[in-house]
Simulated scan of single mutants.
Amino acid sequence: MFYDEPPMRVAAPGSPGAATAQARAKGGPPGWPDGVPPPGARGWEAAVVPWLLDLCPPDYRGHAVLRRHPVALAWLAEHHVEAQVQAMRRAYRRVRVDLAERLPTGTVDALLVCLEQEGLRLRAAQRGIALVRDALEGQIFVPRLRGGSATDLA
């Protein structure tokens, strides 16, 4: 669940000021995956592949086409994580009905906490995948100015 406003995107990779904006976004835009260099950094596309593969079933690692084409891998990862989010939501709705009588007291509540934490992790992964996909497609992330007004700058 992300309440922060998404960064403004400028579609033209060669647009004026794009390199400066990329340099300012040291760790990438808000929601950018931890451990992955920001878009535009040397080797960031190669570094994003293991992160995406970690979000997919282990068997995906055996397909060379996914390692060679991060855009395809991001597309598959997006679908896979979306399915996981849907499964997590379904489990959260059904856990009391399906397991309350079969588990010791307090276990269902602990399981609900587990499902909630996993749901948050998956939603963060969805945000990261969307940002990675956008960057792979050449979108440039430009930081937004926060707070204040034009008169504050005078």
Rank of each mutant, 00 (worst) to 15 (best):
A130P: 00
A87P: 02
Y60G: 00
A72T: 13
Q139N: 12
R102S: 11
P143H: 08
C56I: 10
L66D: 01
L73K: 03
Y60T: 10
H79A: 09
D109R: 06
P143Y: 05
P104D: 13
P143L: 09
A46G: 08
Q84K: 13
V65M: 09
V95S: 04
V36W: 01
D134S: 12
A135E: 06
L99R: 04
A100N: 07
C114P: 00
F141V: 05
A74D: 04
G106R: 01
H79V: 07
V132S: 03
E78K: 14
Q86M: 15
L52I: 05
E78F: 07
R102I: 05
A91W: 14
V81E: 01
A125Q: 07
E82M: 11
P37A: 14
V85A: 11
E118I: 00
G35W: 01
L52W: 01
Y92P: 00
R68P: 04
A47K: 15
A64W: 09
A41N: 08
R96K: 12
I129V: 13
P143T: 07
V65E: 15
W51K: 02
Y60C: 05
E101Q: 06
E78V: 08
P70M: 12
R89Y: 07
V95T: 06
L120V: 10
R102G: 05
V81R: 01
V97M: 06
R133F: 05
A83P: 12
L111V: 11
E45I: 13
M88D: 02
V108G: 02
R42Y: 12
G128H: 03
A91Y: 12
Q84P: 03
R89G: 00
A110G: 11
R93S: 08
P70F: 13
Y92G: 02
E118L: 01
V36P: 03
A125S: 08
P39F: 05
P57N: 02
P39I: 03
P57A: 10
L112T: 03
P39C: 12
V81M: 06
L53N: 06
G138K: 07
A72G: 06
V49L: 11
R89V: 08
R61S: 06
A64E: 15
A91S: 14
R94S: 06
L76D: 15
R89K: 08
D59F: 13
P38R: 15
E137H: 10
R123H: 12
R94P: 00
R102C: 05
L111S: 08
L76F: 14
A74K: 02
D98H: 04
P39N: 10
Q126M: 13
A124T: 14
